[in-house]
Amino acid sequence: MEFCPTCGTMLQYELPHMGRPSRFFCPTCPYVCYIENKVKIKKKMHLDKKDLEPVITDDDMKNASQTDATCPKCGHGRAAYVQFQTRSADEPATIFYTCMNDTCRSTWRED
C-alpha cells in the first residue's frame, strides 16, 4: 500500500492506457506518481540448501529402549523406540521406531 505524501490518503492504482504508463494517484488531491515498467535485476544470488540434521540419530536409536513391534517393511518382531511430544501437551506423544534387523533398519512412527 502506498499513501499520498501530501494528504495521507491511500493511493489508487491505474493501469497503463493509450501509451501512458501505469500510475498511483490520490483521489482527494492532484498528487500523481508514475510507475516505471522496466525492472532491472542488479545481482543474481545462488541459493544453497542447508544440510538437514536428523532429529533422531542412529546413536539415539542404538541406546533406545526396545520392544516387540513388527516392522512394516521386513516383518521383524523387534524394534527400538523413542517418544517425543510433537503436538500440544494434551495430545499423546509420537513414538518413532527403528527396526532392529541389521539388514533392514527402516524407521516408522506411530501417532
Rank of each mutant, 00 (worst) to 15 (best):
E2I: 15
C7E: 01
C7D: 02
C7R: 05
G8P: 03
T9S: 06
M10T: 12
L11A: 04
P16T: 05
H17E: 14
P21A: 14
F24L: 07
F24S: 00
P27T: 08
T28N: 14
C29V: 05
C29I: 05
V32P: 04
V32K: 03
E36Y: 06
E36K: 07
N37L: 15
N37Y: 09
N37R: 14
N37F: 14
K38G: 07
K38Q: 13
K38S: 10
K40V: 15
I41F: 09
K42W: 11
K43C: 05
K44E: 14
M45S: 12
H46L: 14
D48E: 10
D48Q: 14
D48I: 15
D48L: 10
K49S: 15
K49T: 09
K50N: 07
P54D: 01
V55L: 11
V55Y: 05
I56L: 03
I56G: 00
T57Y: 10
D58N: 14
D59V: 04
D60I: 06
K62N: 04
K62D: 06
K62H: 05
A64T: 00
S65Q: 05
Q66F: 08
A69W: 00
T70P: 00
T70G: 12
C71M: 01
P72K: 06
P72L: 05
K73D: 11
C74R: 03
G75V: 01
G77Y: 09
R78V: 13
R78F: 04
R78K: 09
R78Y: 06
R78N: 09
R78H: 10
A79Q: 03
A79E: 01
A79S: 08
A80M: 01
V82L: 03
V82N: 00
Q83P: 04
Q83L: 13
R87I: 09
S88Q: 11
S88T: 12
D90T: 08
D90C: 09
P92S: 11
F96K: 00
Y97G: 00
C99I: 01
M100L: 12
N101W: 03
N101S: 06
R105N: 07
S106E: 08
S106R: 08
T107I: 15
T107G: 11
T107K: 12
W108D: 02
W108V: 05
W108E: 00
W108Q: 03
R109P: 10
R109N: 04
E110D: 06
